[in-house]
Amino acid sequence: MTQHRFVPFLALALVACGRSETNPPTDPAAPINTAEAEAPAPTPPPGVGSIMPGSGPQTFVGRWAANVRWCANPRGAERPIEISTTRFEGYENSCGILSISQVADGYEAALACAAEGQTSNERVRMAVQGDAMRLTWLNRNGAAVSLVRCPAPEAAAPAS
């Protein structure tokens, strides 16, 4: 019987302790008041929408070359490839990005390509660290190439 007398005392003791720091499930949480929380959300590049999770396309969008000297070449075999959120453009080939998904080490993209009058479907993995990309051709036995990010054209042009 002494056990039943203890239960109301415990309930009364918990109420007397004051308001709990945890909000009930039906109440919204208090807002977080920090500079980071008040900063506006980053705006994705045009045409990206919500298909790019994680760190986003800024990791792979740009001009890339196997040799940094190629960055200055606008034409020819030794020129950079250009990757946007919708296109993958290289020497004598042009690909549309059909789909893209985030994977552990970057992004995998399905491409519809046209090169020298032929069409093909390709799959690539783009793994970027800083200004270096490892581009792996998934349907070419995992053939991989290391690329460097080219500076923006205006940054690469000599000062006048």
Rank of each mutant, 00 (worst) to 15 (best):
Gly18Asn: 02
Gln118Tyr: 03
Gly96Ala: 06
Leu138Ala: 09
Tyr107Leu: 09
Arg123Asp: 09
Ala143Trp: 06
Val15Leu: 15
Thr2Lys: 09
Glu116Thr: 10
Glu82Tyr: 08
Glu92Asn: 07
Thr26Lys: 08
Arg87Gln: 02
Gly106Cys: 08
Tyr107Asp: 06
Ala143Ile: 06
Pro153Ile: 05
Ile51Cys: 00
Pro28Arg: 11
Thr26Ser: 14
Glu122Ala: 14
Gly117Asp: 03
Ala72Ser: 13
Val103Thr: 12
Arg5Cys: 00
Glu116Asp: 13
Pro151Asp: 04
Gly76Pro: 00
Gly142Glu: 02
Met52Leu: 15
Phe6Asn: 03
Thr85Gly: 14
Ala114Thr: 15
Leu14Ile: 14
Trp64Ala: 04
Gly117Leu: 05
Asn67Cys: 07
Pro45Phe: 13
Ala152Asn: 13
Val124Ser: 12
Pro40Gln: 02
Ala11Phe: 12
Ala159Met: 12
Gly117Ile: 09
Val128Leu: 04
Ser101Asn: 05
Leu111Ala: 02
Val128Gly: 05
Pro57Cys: 12
Val15Trp: 05
Val15Tyr: 04
Asn67Lys: 13
Val7Met: 03
Pro28Ser: 04
Val124Leu: 14
Ala109Lys: 02
Gly56Ser: 01
Ser20Pro: 01
Gly49Asn: 03
Pro45Cys: 09
Asn23Val: 00
Ile97Ala: 08
Ser120Ala: 15
Val128Ser: 12
